[in-house]
């Protein structure tokens, strides 16, 4: 019983208004009989952390047990994922699986440091959200759409494109776009989306490939201009931003976040978790919050999510190799 007693350890600090969050100790004998911990394989504050907290609150209420977020950052999200892969498959330890931890990092890092198989060592439970990337340009850059981007890149010695970091899904999109469009793009990695966006607003870098949640407010506020979206169809929140496909380039790629446990979780728990999550994501409140930051609620069953992870894992491996980024 790893965290038995946590409900009683209601701190004075948290206790002030956390009654709703922590809830009463469950009387039910069945799962969940104790708090569930969700490992976020990143430091607090990122998108993964945010999605986890957004869902944890409502899901905890539905399950009658608090969901405790535990941040275990490191090695492109592999430290936390490895930790969960080795935990007991009892449904009390889950991880925020995502495009980095389960599709990009395993191909990015040298084989001897990847200590789990993204598909086989996990029970993939549910997709929480996926969101497209959006390319934004500095307002004074003169780049307004994909066509001007291509012309500018072809005319000069290529274009600088910022991203939130080497090996991120946005970096991979830059590599793919350069390949598909046959132009030269210079990847300028930053430490996180914030500094990269600052550089684009200031005009130090003309372009950036960013996830929609972190770029949404800047597009709305007019501090940068949206060029194209990496979704298959136009996004409901930004209907006037055209997709890459519409602009003649078959570039589609969402980043995604889901919930997974160690391999061998009981099917009953997986089914219960999946249905509670999907019911939660379908509430008006959650839909509104997702729409606000540009995410699409996940609607896959557990098998569907497992297939999805398998496909993504296979899809990104060649792109990672082409990117020349390697963490070895």
């Amino acid at each position: 019983m790893r965290f038995a007693g946590t409900t009683r350890r209601r701190s004075v600090i948290v206790g002030l208004s956390a009654l709703a969050v922590l809830g009463q100790p469950a009387l039910a004998q069945a799962w969940p009989a104790q708090p569930i911990r969700v490992v976020v394989p990143y430091a607090p504050g990122g998108t993964t952390d945010l999605v986890a907290r957004l869902v944890a609150q409502g899901l905890g209420e539905r399950l009658g047990q608090p969901i405790i977020i535990e941040n275990r950052p490191g090695a492109g999200a592999m430290v936390g994922s490895e930790f969960v892969a080795r935990a007991a498959p009892d449904g009390y330890t889950l991880v925020m699986s995502n495009i980095a931890s389960h599709a990009i990092s395993p191909s990015l890092y040298p084989a001897n440091t990847v200590r789990y198989n993204a598909v086989r060592d996990f029970t993939h439970v549910a997709l929480l959200t996926s969101n497209p990337s959006v390319w934004v340009a500095h307002n004074g850059s003169g780049i307004t759409d994909l066509a001007t981007l291509r012309t500018r890149a072809a005319a000069g010695q290529g274009l600088d494109v910022a991203s939130s970091g080497a090996g991120s899904s946005n970096h991979m999109l830059i590599v793919q776009l350069a390949q598909l469009a046959g132009i030269t793009l210079h990847h300028i990695p930053f430490r996180g989306a914030g500094p990269a966006m600052t550089a684009v607003i200031a005009g130090q870098v003309p372009l950036m490939s960013d996830s929609l949640p972190s770029a949404a407010a800047h597009i709305r506020g007019g501090s940068v201009r949206a060029i194209a979206m990496s979704s298959a169809r136009r996004h409901a929140t930004f209907p006037d931003v055209a997709t890459f496909r519409e602009q003649g380039l078959d570039l589609v790629g969402d980043s995604w976040f889901g919930l997974s446990g160690p391999a061998g979780m009981p099917a009953a728990i997986v089914t219960r978790l999946n249905s509670e999550i999907r019911a939660l994501l379908d509430t008006a409140d959650m839909r509104a919050r997702y729409a606000e930051f540009g995410g699409t609620p996940g609607a896959l069953d557990a098998d569907g999510y497992t297939r999805f992870v398998t496909e993504e894992f296979a899809r990104w491996a060649p792109v990672v190799r082409a990117s020349g980024a390697e963490a070895g």
Partner: peptide, 14 residues
């Protein structure tokens, strides 16, 4: 920023 987004506010330039 995360706390604000959870509250439904997107901190931005405006």
């Amino acid at each position: 920023v995360g706390a604000l987004i959870i509250q439904g506010i997107q901190p931005g330039p405006r």
